[in-house]
């Protein structure tokens, strides 16, 4: 019976399942980021995968399959795995107060010292810190950044996955990155990588003034 089955044309349900399982590592990596917990990540990927298998008729051939799977994963996370919707309101307002450092005036020298000299990579001591900082981001910022950076989804695909306009995705990515940068900068100072004080006014002088001073 089993032998006869393997000789027949591949069962579309099984074929679809194989396609889904081919993306399991990516889905798990994203789920670990979203849930911040290995066990919950497994539950999330399991639920999302089964949902995807059940919804296989709804996948439009020719569209991005991985983005479709990640949309289901994101949906499942947003709708079932978050404890209440309180977090969103608190954080979105808390991080929207126009902090000059959060707004991006970190000096070029500071930024340069956060990278490996003559290399494109972030300094190893900052990589672990960055990972922690991503975990601490509010859900909305973290989801947008993870989908963008880990899975290289387009803004449009992220907007579809999160059920928000593209503009909202852009502002979440922007603000999320500013928070990450700020935390890295504080950590770099604490670790002695840079000597500048983030609150020192000389560190937030606009570029034109710096040029004039040279």
């Amino acid at each position: 019976m089993v032998l006869r089955e393997t000789r027949r044309a591949p069962d579309p349900a099984r074929q679809f399942e194989e396609n889904v399982l081919a993306h399991l590592d990516g889905m798990y990596a994203v789920a670990r980021r979203l849930t911040r917990d290995a066990t919950v990540a497994e539950d999330l990927v399991h639920d999302a995968t089964i949902k995807a298998l059940k919804a296989r008729e709804q996948f439009e051939a020719g569209t991005n399959f991985k983005a479709w799977l990640l949309r289901i994963l994101t949906n499942t996370f947003i709708n079932g795995y978050r404890r209440g919707g309180l977090e969103r309101a608190t954080f979105e307002s808390a991080h929207d107060n126009g902090d000059p450092i959060a707004d991006g005036w970190i000096s070029a020298a500071t930024m340069r010292s956060m990278r490996e000299p003559e290399e494109e990579a972030l300094r190893p001591v900052l990589r672990a810190e960055l990972s922690r900082a991503v975990d601490e981001l509010p859900d909305e910022f973290r989801i947008a950044i993870v989908l963008c950076d880990v899975e290289e989804m387009s803004y449009k695909e992220i907007a579809d996955a999160m059920g928000t306009p593209i503009g909202t995705v852009m502002s979440r990515i922007h603000r999320g990155r500013k928070i990450l940068q700020q935390k890295l900068q504080h950590h770099a100072i604490a670790a002695g990588l840079i000597r500048e004080q983030p609150d020192d006014a000389s560190n937030v002088v606009p570029l034109a003034a710096r040029r004039a001073a040279r």
Binding site: D25, G26, Y28, A29, V30, R32, R33, M111, R112, M114, R115, E120, A121, L122, L126, R127, A128, L130, S131, V134, I145, V146, D149, V150, E152, R177, L180, Q181, L184
Partner: peptide
């Protein structure tokens, strides 16, 4: 460069599992 370095680091840290 810093934005790129951060993006790359998030990707590699996340995809190690």
């Amino acid at each position: 460069e810093l934005a790129r370095a951060m993006k790359r680091a998030i990707r590699s840290e996340s995809r190690s599992v």
